[in-house]
Write a protein that binds this DNA or RNA. Sequence first.
DNA 1: TTGTACGCGTTATCAC
DNA 2: GTGATAACGCGTACAA
Lengths: 343, 343
Amino acid sequence: MTALSDHRTAARPTMADVAAEAHVSVKTVSRVVNHEPGVRPDTAERVRAVIERLGFRRHDGARLMRQGRTFTIALVVEDLANPFYSQVGAAVEREARIRQHQLITASAEGSPSRERAVIEALVNRRVDGIVVVPADESASSDAVLEASHTPIVYMDRPVRGTPRDTILSDNHGGIRSAVEHLVAHGHRNIAFYGDDPAFWTARQRRDAFVATQQSLGLPTTPRVSMGPHSPASVHESLSQWTTGPEPITAVITGNNRITLAALLALRELRLPLSLVGYDDFELAALIDPPVTVVHQDPAAMGQKAAQQLFARLLGDESQAQTVVMPTRLIVRASGVRRGTPNR
Amino acid sequence: MTALSDHRTAARPTMADVAAEAHVSVKTVSRVVNHEPGVRPDTAERVRAVIERLGFRRHDGARLMRQGRTFTIALVVEDLANPFYSQVGAAVEREARIRQHQLITASAEGSPSRERAVIEALVNRRVDGIVVVPADESASSDAVLEASHTPIVYMDRPVRGTPRDTILSDNHGGIRSAVEHLVAHGHRNIAFYGDDPAFWTARQRRDAFVATQQSLGLPTTPRVSMGPHSPASVHESLSQWTTGPEPITAVITGNNRITLAALLALRELRLPLSLVGYDDFELAALIDPPVTVVHQDPAAMGQKAAQQLFARLLGDESQAQTVVMPTRLIVRASGVRRGTPNR
DNA sequence: TTGTACGCGTTATCAC
DNA sequence: GTGATAACGCGTACAA
């Protein structure tokens, strides 16, 4: 009766091994392991002793297969080393851990095809749900997700096709607050440096900049430069727009990386421009002058996404919803001072 | 014959469903799915067509259970949002992905008991191996790991007990390079601000500082202050050590966070001290003066750890080894200039 | 080339 | 209270 698993006993005892040793059935062992009621205390104690002695550990893979749920969710992003994503990751992991779930993280490295492959692999593993920062707007995994009924929550960028839960950041509001802040301090000629317009967020922020400028009646000379940007490209553009007619007196940068490029360029050119950056960053306060930024809260976004996902896992069947998370302007010296040297 | 799974067919077709539909056996379906030889092209084609039509996806959980391996590794750290760990995570994930494995990431939040619980959960899931940045030196999960034969690689900090593969950073060499750099620029009175001595790395760096000072014949006045530190505590200590006899002219900080605290304190006190920080950080080059740092390479450490783990998974049975990864001094202005104002 | 029977380790069902 | 047995979905061994 136990000969069957005898040769494996040494390696990894199963419930059958425990059962044989304790002279009970596997089901009883299962009951004890899972703290189910209906086991006489002394039986339970005997089983526990054997479990301890044999070093038995429940095989969750088998358990989860039986139950049909894996108690695992996944997060797919572009690059886990990016501070934005790592904060999202930490928040999602936390929500998962609180609910006794585990988190599989995967990088798609910005490639839609790799993202598709990653998502399919996750679906094959029967993860209970997925949070994705999509590489592009083509819902390339839609069919797979649909067929497998795997709940998904998109973050930071929307995706075409079937409406899905989506957590976005208020790009428009963020840019507007930046422009208004600069205008309140007397600026009228402001330049915007955005990222590669292939990114949805880059386009959003650019459009918000243009729209806000118009609504505030600012000069409509086009002072928008989209990336990809390098310190050199920003440098060149800055030296043009600061000379000639109606020179710019302030700059808004569309993300972290471009803020860095602009800071380097401004430093080299020794230009006393005001600056508001998109995305807060560590040590923004230690730069001279401290950098005013539009702060998105990646942790809050990640938490929200995970919460939405778990709501679905708990049976929420309501319509897919899009949540726009607010941004916050963190005012530091760089956006306030005007005409003072930048270093 | 198929009545059995009929009611589930709509939801998640299994190989049995495909087999029934294609009028072949499950085994043949399995062969097609796994690209095994020995299937007539037209049979394979017919099966593929049904797979496509039904939207069948192999259940990897069942597959992996059968095979005894999960093709999953895990990473346990203190906090995924910490740049050091997120870079480690990205590197580990990359190595995993290259080898068709998936990565489960988990935070232990610095708590040994939580770490233990997390590791046990991972072992229960039968992850193939684990990379851990241990919360403390007590090998609290040793018994579980031993019993389950789960390979483990420790990172950044060693653990007592059974020798295990361990990837460390050259704390001693890093600190020595910092001290030597300062001494080469004429400094003789240097202070060291370390983190909480509960951390192994903090003690290592402190000891390295003291040892290097002695070996270089520097004044042995104890200028060591261990944390936890805040900007205020560094502030207070600095104002003492810069007054009185033999005032310090340079500072070495034991990690990222303390570097930040020191920068704030130095700025407030308007002290023209030289500074070398441990850990590189984004924008270190943009601070005025740019900050000289001892750079550890978290990505390299993570990669090395993952590679070591996979070597074990591939059957490497050699003795556990400890690898010490080199650090690199990145010289920027803060450690070079002497007696010039700090801002 | 294809199929049958069974096992992976657990939980669910239902009987005792 | 406790146990026998059948799933979960797939792969392996071996037969046809």
